[in-house]
């Protein structure tokens, strides 16, 4: 089953030194993403399957092994979704910005 990811509307995010720092505007919690997580975050458009994002943005740029990279990415996305800063779905996300 495909996973689709989109940025939550309840966040503010800025790139600093090539990495993202994200704040949940609902509780002001801060998150800093490393380079790989930043690539996934930037590609979270709600339309591109996570598998495609991992292939294009992670494996291609960081020479990662696809299966392990996907497992790590899925874990990351679920954790970010738990904090309410990422939306995940098994279908494209229409309301993604």
């Amino acid at each position: 089953m495909s996973m689709y990811i989109a940025k939550s509307r309840s966040i503010a995010a800025r790139a600093l030194d090539g990495e993202m720092i994200i704040m949940s505007t609902s509780d002001s919690m801060l998150f800093t993403l490393n380079e790989v997580a930043t690539e996934i975050w930037l590609a979270a458009d709600g339309r591109t399957p996570l598998s495609q994002i991992v292939q294009d943005k992670v494996c291609a740029k960081f020479e990662a092994e696809p299966e392990a990279a996907y497992a790590d990415a899925e874990d990351l996305c679920r954790r970010l979704a738990d904090y309410g800063i990422l939306v995940i779905s098994d279908q494209p996300i229409e309301s993604a910005r």
Partner: peptide
């Protein structure tokens, strides 16, 4: 990034208001 973290921990931040937080 560390500087942003330090600032956000120490900015006077009285209201839980999304617009103000942003």
């Amino acid at each position: 990034k560390q500087a942003v973290n330090a600032l956000m921990r120490n900015i006077l931040f009285f209201a839980k208001d999304p617009k103000l937080s942003e």
